[in-house]
Amino acid sequence: MSLEMNHVYYTYQEGSPAESHALQDICLNINEGEFLGIVGHTGSGKSTLIQHLNGLLKPSKGEVLIDDIDINRKDAKAQRKERRMRVGLVFQYPEYQLFEETVELDIGFGPRSMGLSEAEVTSRVQEAMALMQLDYNALRKQSPFDLSGGQKRKVAIAGVLAMKPKYLVLDEPTAGLDPMGREEFLELLGQLHQQGMTIIMVSHSMDDMARYAQRMIVMDHGKIQLEGTPREIFAQPVKLRELGLDVPTLTKLLLELKQRGLDVRTDLFEPQAVKAEIMRALKAGKEQVTC
């Protein structure tokens, strides 16, 4: 059971002078239960890639499989809709998608269009709001447009969670949130992941990736340039800079220390490990001086 992209190509405005090859020969396998991070500089094709994962964009060439079914094949029409519903997609600035009179109705839009009964819809809305730490009784009758920016974002994401997707795909979900909101939200994603949800997140923050992703892909010009665990990826600072990216803050600290002559490992990024490594290097350095 997995999401799979096989040799996917995608071209915007094919045939016009402005045509742009947004994806080229993408092969990607996302396993159930995984936390996958997608990074890449602006315009590298991240958003285009994730829109393929639930059939919003059809590949110009290649195939996309959701749990072993090619979602773009004509003869799989009946299964297609159900499969697509397994992938929940949260767009960048998802608060744009709010439109209903009340928070409750808006979050219920997804489940309702899946054809669930009213009772089921209500329980899903409650569940999703609880997950996003929104107070059901206080907010249900409010207009989503009267909420603060952060709350709007939560409502919008609850609207996707209410559909109980197996795979949750998020496009820069923390863009524009304040530090607290950001922290809270990432914690929450971590929790969802622990509960068994597959999470695919696009982000520009290497620190977030270092903390949460189990596996990362790095995109550039519509191609996957690097793939591996955060440790493997962040061990290549030169290559990352070539691709217009950077390493996490703490790795940067280690690199800086090394440049100044301290003999430290530079492939770490967890606060504890970095601290231990610096302490160790300092101690070793001192011993050398005393001898």
Binding site: L89, P94, Y96, Q97, F109, S113, M163
Partner: peptide, 27 residues
């Protein structure tokens, strides 16, 4: 962009009779 976001939530802009389609435009 909005059409995509709403289709991801199960909105259907393409099928149904005239009235249903008009209603589908609200989101």
């Amino acid at each position: 962009k909005i059409m995509k976001a709403q289709s991801a939530r199960g909105a259907d802009f393409e099928s149904g009779n005239l009235l249903e389609r008009a209603k589908a435009m609200i989101p």
